[in-house]
């Protein structure tokens, strides 16, 4: 087990390194002078020169990359060309908001998705099953930004129940969280249902029923525990995807998180902020995957810890 965890940790190192290379390359692959790109659209020639010196852009690439890594390790991600504030400050201010939004979305998606999935599986082919699976299909297919606008239109513009945009009270969180979580809820409902159906077919369920246990105990104590293993894996991955998906949701709801920061930065050609935000989101995703894999190893005793080819 510990060997597996150590191996998994070790595999993360080249990935983090590779992510850093890609993020570092974003600016270097742009057409034209990287100093001008980093300095921003309205930079004076003096400022461009300053940037060139600060990022050592006249040095060979590997030296530049070394400096970039050193900056990363110290938490120095450069300076926003738009606000002229350190990128770390910009991100630190907004990241908790994205984390909050993604967490609430995940909670919403889990409760709704797993709940609907269990009921669907236990009442297979019922009206509830068919209706919830139909909604799940639509939920996966609906563009998240469109869903956001439709919810705004209904609950904010027409019914005036909830604020359309911004941040403040818990009421501001409802629409963004529901929007962001809907696709995950749909996915989880489908996965919970099929996993539950699979488990319910197994011999130990028949045995449990034959022992005279109530259906309630069979489903919630015996079946659910086993059926939730794939759901837990998806749960972790979904959290990462929600953080990335926040880009669209935050834009529609004017939620001042890192997703919105990224989009604004791209449109303003504020490359240091783009790099910082992408770096953060990717590293988080790597970290989440790592945690999911380790949790999975604890949950599922069938996983084998040796050998070279398991994913």
């Amino acid at each position: 087990m510990y060997q597996y965890i150590a191996r998994r940790l070790l595999l993360t190192v080249p990935v983090v390194f590779g992510v850093a290379v890609i993020v570092f390359s974003i600016v270097r692959f742009l057409p034209g002078d990287p100093a001008r790109a980093i300095a921003g659209v309205q930079a004076t020639p003096e400022f461009i020169q300053q940037v060139r010196i600060r990022y050592a852009l006249d040095e060979p690439l590997h030296v530049q990359f070394g400096l970039y890594l050193r900056g990363l390790a110290r938490g120095d991600l450069g300076q926003s060309t738009f606000t002229r504030r350190p990128v770390t400050t910009e991100i630190a201010e907004r990241f908790p908001r994205t984390l909050l939004l993604a967490s609430i979305s995940l909670a919403f998606a889990t409760v709704l998705g797993v709940g609907a999935g269990i009921v669907s599986a236990t009442r297979r082919n019922s009206l509830f099953d068919n209706a919830s699976m139909f909604i799940a299909l639509v939920g996966v297919a609906a563009p998240v930004f469109w869903l956001a606008l439709m919810l705004q239109l209904l609950f904010a513009v027409q019914l005036r129940l909830l604020p359309a945009t911004g941040m403040g009270s818990w009421r501001h969180l409802v629409l963004p969280a529901v929007t962001l979580g809907s696709a995950s809820a749909a996915l989880m409902a489908r996965i919970t249902r099929s996993s539950m159906l699979e488990v319910l077919r197994l011999d130990f369920i028949t045995t449990a029923r034959a022992k005279g246990l109530t259906e309630r105990v069979v489903i919630y104590k015996h079946a659910l525990k086993n059926a939730l293993i794939p759901v837990v894996t998806v749960l972790g991955l979904q959290f990462g995807i929600l953080l990335g998906g926040a880009v669209l949701t935050e834009t529609v709801f004017a939620w001042p998180g890192v997703g919105r920061l990224l989009v604004d930065a791209i449109l303003r050609r504020d490359y240091p902020v783009v790099q910082g935000t992408v770096m953060l989101l990717a590293l988080l995703f790597v970290l989440i995957n790592l945690v999911v894999d380790i949790v999975y190893a604890f949950l599922d005793p069938r996983i084998h810890y040796q050998g070279g080819s398991e994913e």
């Binding site: 080249p14 890609i22 995807i241 990335g244 998906g245 880009v247 992408v278 590293l283 995703f285």
Partner: peptide, 14 residues
Amino acid sequence: DIMIAFPGILLAIV
């Protein structure tokens, strides 16, 4: 693994 580290639409955005 490195490509997958960018969740969902993020890689396309990059």
